[in-house]
Design a protein around this nucleic acid. Structure first.
Length: 877
DNA sequence: TTGTTCACGC
DNA sequence: GACGTACGTGAACAAA
């Protein structure tokens, strides 16, 4: 078998990784982004290349033999950032654990080590592949040698062999140094010939072969200026070529034979991964989960309960109710565990369902329960007619509030990060996907018992952290009560008119068939319109329409691209219409019908209360927070959402401009405060300010643009985002933003100070002390940093609005109980609440909803809620 | 199964 | 000037 040597330019890859990834750090504050990127690249190389031999080369000291030639070599290089420098030793530790040889040689660069070994190996007929981010190394390409250049990110590479190099540049490997000699390299401070860039250099080399060739034929060079430049800088060019030449004769003690790829030390690697918190990489080195401490965990004493007795049902106790299917509305409970000062107990489902003692204990709100994911437990039991009350602490919610951006809020992770009993990952116990199954009782009892015990262990730590962050109230007064309300809403479900959905579906299917035929006729070929690939080929190859944008995989066929082609061909509007209707049919008609619950005939969504980075809720299976409303055709879907009781109505109460009101409050901008105090139409007001016109002179076009600007402020979009949504240039978009900030100087000040605060503290907060960490705000990567800045500006606005409506839900629930109404809260859609309301309560509830929502917090501007109702959701507008 | 593209809401 | 640009959910397709 031929041997294969992989050579990695360690410094180059480390740099790439460092700048490509946000500035991650582990709990101890050690930066890890470059190590992470470096490691993912290593894993990919090992998997894909299967080398027999391998070496990672590093640069040694500051000066090399090249500095003897040119002392300013790499003179413009900025010093290695300390955040990266501290990561380099970690990379070596990992290489040791992987048993991958690495090398650095005093006075030489990594390039030269690579060049030397590559030469030796290729000469003896080995296959050689080099990984780097530095184009210089292309000069090493040969019959047996390929160079992989990092493209985007770190693991994306372009591989060059002789043919690819010729196709791309029309060059042979040895001409790369001639190229550098002519054009120079600013990053290495190699001067080259001033005025000669890549284009010119390639042209010269195509004509004359080499740098020397150019000078031998200097008279043949066209352009007087160019000739002068070349002549003037001949020495410099030749020196540049020399600098760019990679040495293939480094006095190395090493021969290719001496760098065999060793057997990796999985234990050691996993230990490092744990320290660095590279959870996502664990599977890739240890797919079977053989090591990694899974069976290192001490056995704990879990009693498998035959029957329930009082010692198990005390207060406080940690309670775990386990079900495997994500969807707890339909999942089977597979077991439960209770942990308290009397011990740890496993309870089988049969025992749970058959014992009145459990039911009674569960329903007793004075019996304090501590859980992990309260809503899952509450709703899971509710389906079995067991009321779970008295939950005082949810470890998952606590973890989410402490850091919504944490990589995971599963129990194993929470336990690992805090001092507490360690817990196996659910996936390790139950498997995943198709292979997921309930283990034998002994193992299940251990796992659940361990979880319950860990919940108990971890509670004081989490509570302490929350207290320090002044977030305990956020948990106990807002999120925990809200969990109960959401659980009830989910279990209650929303009634739908299945026949109405079916009817809409039939009409859609009919129309889709028609449009499909029309499109096929216009295209002159039958193809799958839903396939972006096929559609792209038909439009941009067969029909030769101008392609505006490309995606990774081909032509972009997104709506904004197609809209620009509207007038080019009559097929375009048909495709857009087809897309629209097909979306309605598959996602909404078919999706909603599939989601109707067998037993209740209603739709039971799940609100995820511990997911979004801003504090908003999300909704799944089905998502009832994105039911169409903007276009009439889609809006009709709302006809199918109906009250579950006769003589009831759907009532919708939505906040008017809550985010901008919140902005007025936090920024204290005088102009914005005034606008809301006078209850002005905010988009018109913004138009007046941005375009400097009187109210009467605001055109609908101006108002539309102003609305987009406000939208941008609320959602933290960039000038680019604004330009896209308005179809204007980025410059124009930026000038709108500038104009806006001029008109609202208080907002500008707020934006500046919140960014500074984020840089100082590393996080931002909402009015109710919700947090979001923004480590990327100090990143040197432009994208990462500006993203962090926009997030810093936006999260307090969006997150505070989320806080407010959550509090309104808690207050509303209380007010409804106090009023003794039969009305039920059904849904929350970020800034609106949906209820079903008996006819006799319409007036009362309309008043109550507005009253509660408007007064749930006291801001420096009034809050406004609009209420409407009707026989269906469609009519409640 | 996993990633990509597209589209819906706020 | 590069980089690739609000978040979240879900469907269909295409490539593993």
């Amino acid at each position: 078998m031929t041997k294969k040597l992989v050579l990695v330019d360690g410094n180059s890859i480390a740099y790439r990784a460092f700048f490509a990834l946000p500035l991650l750090n582990n709990e101890k504050g050690v930066y890890t982004n470059a190590v992470y990127g470096f490691t993912t690249m290593l894993l990919k190389v090992l998997e894909e290349e299967q080398p027999t031999h391998m070496l990672v080369a590093f640069d040694a000291g500051k000066t090399t033999f090249r500095h003897d030639t040119f002392k300013e070599y790499k003179g413009t290089r900025q010093k290695t950032p300390p955040e990266l420098a501290e990561q380099l030793p970690l990379m070596r530790d990992l290489l040791k654990a992987f048993n991958i040889p690495y090398e650095e040689v005093e006075n030489y660069e990594a390039d030269d080590i690579i060049g030397t070994l590559a030469g030796l190996a290729a000469d003896t007929g080995w296959e050689v592949k080099i990984f780097t981010g530095d184009k210089d190394l292309l000069q090493l390409i040969g019959e047996n040698t390929e160079v992989a250049l990092t493209r985007k990110g770190i693991t994306n590479v372009d591989t060059y062999d002789l043919k690819a190099l010729d196709e791309k540049y029309g060059l042979k490997p040895e001409q790369i140094i001639d190229l550098k000699g002519l054009m120079g390299d600013s990053s290495d401070n190699i001067p080259g010939v001033p005025g000669v860039g890549e284009k010119t250099a390639l042209k010269l080399l195509a004509a004359h072969g080499s740098l020397e060739g150019v000078y031998e034929n200097i008279d043949a060079v066209s352009g007087k200026k160019m000739k002068e430049k070349l002549v003037e800088n001949e020495e410099q060019a030749k020196m540049s070529k020399k600098l760019a030449t990679i040495l293939t004769e480094v006095p190395l003690a090493l021969k290719p034979d001496e760098v065999p790829l060793g057997e990796k030390d999985t234990e050691k690697i996993l230990k490092l991964f744990r320290e660095l918190e590279f959870q996502s990489l664990v599977d890739r080195v240890d797919p079977e989960g053989k090591s990694g401490g899974e069976e290192e965990l001490d056995g704990i004493d879990v009693k498998i309960a035959e029957k329930l007795d009082e010692s198990m049902l005390i207060s406080p106790s940690a309670l775990v109710i386990e079900s495997l299917d994500e969807n707890y509305h339909t999942a089977e409970v597979i077991g439960a565990a209770i942990a308290n000062e009397n011990g740890v107990f496993y309870l089988s489902p049969e025992l749970l369902w058959s014992s009145p003692e459990f039911k009674e204990w569960a329903a007793d709100e004075k019996k304090e329960k501590i859980v992990f994911n309260a809503k899952r437990a509450v709703v899971g039991l509710a389906w079995k007619d067991i009321h779970l009350e008295g939950i005082t602490f949810d470890a998952q919610m606590a973890s989410y509030l402490i850091d919504p951006g944490a990589s995971s809020h599963e129990m194993a992770e929470i336990a690992e990060r805090r001092k507490g009993r360690q817990v196996h990952r659910d996936e390790a116990v139950y498997g995943r996907g198709k292979k997921q199954q309930v283990p034998e009782e002994e193992i299940l009892a251990q796992h659940l018992g361990r979880k319950a015990a860990a919940v108990l262990d971890v509670k004081p730590d989490l509570e302490k952290e929350l207290k320090e962050n002044e977030q305990l109230e956020l948990l106990t007064e807002l999120e925990m009560p809200l969990t109960v309300i959401l659980g009830r809403m989910e279990r209650h479900g929303v009634a739908v008119d299945k026949e109405e959905l079916a009817k809409l579906g039939e009409s859609l299917t009919e129309r889709l068939t028609e449009i499909e035929k029309k499109i096929h006729d216009l295209a002159g070929t039958d193809f799958n319109i839903n396939s972006p690939k096929q559609l792209g080929e038909v439009l941009f190859e067969k029909m030769q329409l101008p392609a505006m944008k490309k995606t990774k995989t081909g032509y972009s066929t997104s709506a904004d691209v197609l809209e620009k082609l509207q007038n080019k061909h009559e097929i375009i509007p048909e495709i857009l219409h087809y897309r629209q209707l097909s979306k309605l049919n598959s996602t909404y008609i078919e999706g909603l019908i599939k989601a109707i619950h067998q037993k209740t005939g209603k739709i039971h969504t799940r609100f995820n209360q511990a997911l979004t980075q801003t504090g908003r809720l999300s909704s799944t299976e089905p998502n009832l927070q994105n039911i169409p409303i903007r276009l009439e055709e889609g809006r009709r879907i709302r006809h199918a959402f109906i009250p579950s009781e006769e003589n009831s109505f759907i009532l919708a109460a939505d906040y008017s401009q809550i985010e901008l009101r919140v902005l007025a409050h936090i920024s204290q901008d005088k102009n914005l405060l005034e606008a809301f105090r006078h209850d002005m139409d905010i988009h018109t007001k913004t138009a007046m300010d941005v375009f400097e016109v009187e109210k009467e002179a605001v055109t609908s076009q101006m108002r539309r643009q102003a609305k987009a600007v406000n939208f941008g402020i609320v959602y933290g979009i960039s000038d680019y985002g604004l330009s896209q949504s308005l179809g204007i240039t980025r410059k124009e978009a930026q000038s709108f933003i500038d104009k806006y900030l001029e008109s609202y100087p208080g907002v500008r000040d707020y934006m500046e100070s919140i960014k500074e605060e984020a840089r100082q503290k590393g996080y931002v907060t909402t009015i109710m002390n919700r947090r979001r960490f923004l480590p990327e705000i100090t990143s040197r990567n432009f994208n990462q940093r500006t993203f962090g800045e926009r997030t810093a500006m936006n999260t307090p606005i969006q997150g505070s609005a989320a806080d407010i409506i959550k509090k309104a839900m808690v207050d509303m629930d209380e007010a409804m109980q106090k009023a003794g109404v039969e009305s039920v809260m059904l849904l929350q859609v970020h800034d609106e609440l949906i209820f079903e309301v008996p006819e006799k309560e319409i007036k009362q509830m309309s008043r109550l909803a507005a009253e509660v929502m408007e007064n749930t917090v006291d801001l420096d501007v009034p809050l406004k809620a609009d209420v409407d109702y009707g026989k269906t959701w469609y009519d409640a507008k």
